[in-house]
Computed example of a mutant assay.
Amino acid sequence: MGNVHIVTDSTADIPPSFVEKYHITVVPLKVTIEEETYQDGVTLSADTFYEKLAGSEAIPTTSQPTPQEFEKVYRRLYKQNKDSKILSIHLSGKMSGTLQSAQIAANEVAPEVHVEVVDSKRASYAFGIIVVELAKLVQLGATFEECKSRLQMLLQQTSVYFLVDTLHYLQKNGRIGKASALIGSLLKMKPVLSLTDSGEVYAYQKARGTKKAFSIIKEALQKQYGNKDVHLGIAHANALQSATNFQKDLEKLLHVQSTTITTIGAVIGSHTGPGTVAFIVTPVEDGER
């Protein structure tokens, strides 16, 4: 495995097959629904979560891992290889206390264990796709500094746009961010949402209907990436058919070298609601396919 460990949290919504293949360490958040608390992706699968959500009138609540949980992970990885360094990449600090828990743990294990905690300023596969690319790099023998350099480039050049069926969940959970000022007009429209540079939700543009909203997304992505080779990620909340339909259009539009369709897990799904579809695009590195 070399001298670099990649750690993230369950809100990255990385497909389990990728977690296993690329040896990514995932620390789960927790979700409480119907007075029962589960570990995201561990004791509660995405499919089961959406089944429970459909039959519940209550809005689920979520909570971050404790610093002690992160510390246990960091120390375990250190024991595997005492020459290794850990790159710990997490959900936007504007959306969760997960980042803070990770940083407290990193401070606790320092200087014995070298951990650098990174605020992705993103959510779901918008940072999961970045984590996967870094894990691939680690498997190729990249150094810690090479991983950090690639990380910064990916954070700058990866884009995300998403559509929600309703703003109800984002509003109720307080994750509406900078879109809150437009909440009245947005309720009558189909907003194309994205994330600010600081990691907050904002309304990129308003549209009448899903078809027009997707056209806006396609136009934005084509303008950003043109003829560049890219990786495409589509994350959906119990909306596989929509994700597959959108995939076909985007693969015709962009120079897509690989596509990953993944399910939005219980924690992020608690905040976006079912029917959400997110589109993530990141550039392919020169010489990579």
Rank of each mutant, 00 (worst) to 15 (best):
Q100N: 15
S120Q: 06
E112D: 11
Q103L: 09
E108W: 13
D119I: 10
E108V: 13
A106M: 06
A110H: 02
Y125V: 03
V115W: 08
V117T: 15
A126L: 09
P111V: 04
S120C: 10
E112M: 03
H114L: 07
P111I: 04
A126V: 08
E108C: 06
Q100S: 13
V118C: 06
Q100T: 14
A123D: 01
V117N: 04
E112F: 01
I104L: 14
V117Q: 04
V118R: 02
A110T: 07
S120K: 09
A102F: 14
A105K: 01
Y125C: 01
P111E: 04
V115M: 09
E108A: 15
A105Y: 09
A123I: 14
A110L: 04
V109W: 09
V118K: 04
N107V: 12
V118L: 02
V115G: 15
N107S: 14
I104W: 05
S120I: 09
V113N: 11
T98G: 00
V118W: 00
A126G: 10
D119M: 02
R122A: 05
E108S: 15
A126P: 08
A110F: 13
E116S: 12
S101M: 08
T98F: 04
K121Q: 10
V117E: 08
E112P: 05
T98C: 01
V109I: 08
S101R: 07
A105N: 07
A106P: 13
N107R: 12
A126N: 10
N107E: 14
S120G: 08
N107F: 03
G97Y: 12
E112A: 11
L99V: 07
R122Y: 01
A123H: 04
V117S: 09
E116P: 11
A110V: 03
V118T: 13
E108R: 14
G97A: 13
A123W: 01
A123N: 09
S124Q: 01
A102V: 12
G97S: 12
N107T: 14
S101D: 07
G97C: 09
R122F: 02
S120Y: 10
A123F: 11
Q103G: 01
A106F: 06
A105H: 10
Q103R: 14
N107M: 11
E112I: 10
A102P: 14
L99M: 03
S101P: 11
E108D: 15
K121V: 01
V118Y: 00
A106G: 11
Q103E: 12
Q100V: 11
